[in-house]
Simulated scan of single mutants.
Amino acid sequence: MDQDFMNRFMPRVIDVLIRDKEHWSNHQYEVEIPLTRMCNMGYVFNGEGKLEINDESYKLRKGCFYHVSPPGVRLKFTTESSNPLLYIAVHFDYRLMEWEGRELISKVSRTSLRLPHVLELESVTRAEEQFRQLLQLWKDKGPGYEWRSRNFLIRLLDQLEGMQASKPLSELRAEHSIHRAMEHVHEHFREPLNREEMAQYCSLSVSYFSLLFKKYTGYSYVQYLHKVRLEKAKMLLRNGFAPVSEIARDIGYEDPLYFSKLFTREVGLSPRDYRKG
């Protein structure tokens, strides 16, 4: 997480809560949010489960920190009744603040926190203690609890950023390059983004870019681009009435027939059937 980002980072804690066995029993051991409206981070203190962010899957177990940001993604948690996922969750939002002369400007950020979505923490006891302190602070609702919770959250993120700094420089650079590529795809998916151009954007050779992209995302670059476009198509099909051909062009496919074949292959339904369903 770069220091320029943290200098401007201003979070607002919305809720701090614990997800226990009763929670999972009430939700049949699966929670899905089709489109998140806030950021989510947490610490797993027991059990095992899975976190999916826009169909990217991550394993969660004791000692894992996770975060989901920015808002506007599909989020899904799953676990098993035999060993349910127990964690403390922090729901928050944030804006980026900066001074322009004597005026303070607030900007909505569409950028994810500069951390991997899942981290396995070495100091398990210390991490759990800190998250429980934040939970208690929020539950007590004492004087100034909102700004104290905000400061607590910033300190937690600062410590996690310090853990990242202990990684080898080459690994950090590789992660950062792929993170930039993923952000670029999400922002420019309508454009004809080929692999060679993205490798050049990241200042990497095509072969090394392809290797790193697969390593850090689990997808080839082309698969990932299709996935981002199809997620956008699903949203447009669910929430609007535009013709399929118009949606195809809007997400970067000039050939509506190719788009329909790709959508049917990846989703299991044609675009028209998906809209009806």
Score class of each variant (00 low, 15 high):
Q200R: 09
G142D: 01
H186A: 07
I178Y: 00
E120V: 04
D140W: 04
E197C: 06
D140S: 10
S123E: 14
Y145P: 11
L160Y: 05
E122A: 12
G162Y: 10
L153F: 07
E122F: 11
H188I: 05
L172N: 11
E175H: 04
E129S: 12
G144S: 03
P143K: 05
I154K: 12
P168Y: 05
E129D: 11
M182Y: 00
L156E: 13
Y201A: 01
L135N: 02
H117R: 06
E122V: 12
E197N: 05
E197A: 10
L172Q: 13
A165L: 14
N151G: 15
H117S: 08
Q164Y: 05
R155N: 15
F189R: 01
A174C: 04
N194R: 09
G142W: 00
E187W: 09
G144W: 01
E191C: 08
S166I: 15
V118F: 01
E183T: 03
S170L: 13
A165N: 14
Y145V: 09
Q200A: 08
V124H: 09
L137H: 04
E183S: 04
L121R: 01
L172P: 04
A181H: 00
Q164L: 15
V185Q: 02
H184I: 01
P192C: 08
E191K: 10
N194L: 07
W147I: 13
E122D: 14
G162L: 11
V118K: 01
P143I: 06
Q159I: 13
G162K: 12
G144H: 03
R132Q: 06
I178F: 01
T125S: 12
F189H: 00
R180K: 13
L172H: 07
M198N: 00
